[in-house]
């Protein structure tokens, strides 16, 4: 099984380079992460993140044969060889496949990803009807792996100003929450040529999301709500 892996150690290398690996490994129903871990037994200098290894933590997002995805839920049998693995595009590389996600999380924090409700806390939970709860489906499942945001050209051009698909999906997650009382402020926060309107419906985000979520649809719903309040 042939691999081409992006290698870069800023302390030792003048520039990034691609390194070829040959691994004897029966793909079967194994995932890419299994092969990478086996590869690391051969060469323990390869840097990549992983944790839950089942598509829940979002640590092992990487660019696999030109497409962002999670190594732990990408079947080896689905990949053309040599399997070319690079770090997520558009973010600074710390080492090999490990990127600095600070900019991504900064944008995520900027949409206030928490419930804003000034009522005194009730004795029990803040209840929702099943229908109200249903409005959060397709939004709350995001694991913040960064696959969508780092595949978005608008984020590549303006990572410091454009919130990005992951952040905007979460913005809508709180706008859609009936327990949240800050809808107007949230919409004000996004009424901006850079923060929201850099989205040009390219839909790379929808294409790559390993959880099959639809940030473009969420962004469309935010725009609909903005229209609703001005007409």
């Amino acid at each position: 099984m042939k691999f081409r892996i992006y290698r870069y150690n800023p302390d030792a290398d003048a520039a990034p380079y691609m390194q070829d690996y040959d691994l004897s490994f029966a793909a079967g129903d194994a995932m890419l992460l299994d092969a990478l871990m086996r590869l690391r037994e051969q060469d323990d200098s390869i840097g990549f993140r992983k944790s839950c290894r089942e598509g829940v933590c979002g640590s092992d997002a990487m660019n696999i044969n030109g497409r962002n995805g999670l190594a732990c839920v990408t079947p080896l049998s689905s990949l053309k060889q040599p399997i070319e693995i690079r770090p997520l595009p558009g973010l600074p590389v710390i080492r090999d496949l490990i990127v600095d996600m600070s900019q991504f999380f900064k944008q995520y924090h900027s949409i206030k990803p928490y419930l804003i409700n000034n009522d005194p806390p009730p004795e029990t939970e803040r209840l929702q009807s099943p229908e109200e709860r249903k409005e959060l489906d397709g939004l709350y499942e995001c694991i913040l792996c960064g696959c969508c945001t780092t595949s978005c050209p608008s984020f590549w051009w303006n990572p410091d100003k454009f919130v990005g698909p992951a952040g905007l999906l979460q913005a809508y997650r709180f706008i859609a929450d009936t327990r949240d009382q800050a809808t107007a402020e949230r919409l004000d926060n996004l009424e901006d040529p850079y923060r929201l309107f850099r989205c040009h419906t390219i839909m790379n985000c929808v294409d790559v999301c390993p959880k099959e979520l639809n940030p473009t649809e969420a962004i469309g719903k935010i725009k609909d709500m903005m229209i609703k309040r001005i007409v």
Binding site: N189, E191, D192, P193, Y194, R195, L196, F197, K223, I230
Partner: peptide
Amino acid sequence: TGAHYGLRDWL
């Protein structure tokens, strides 16, 4: 950021 325009132009 925070120019508070964008929607009108998009529309």
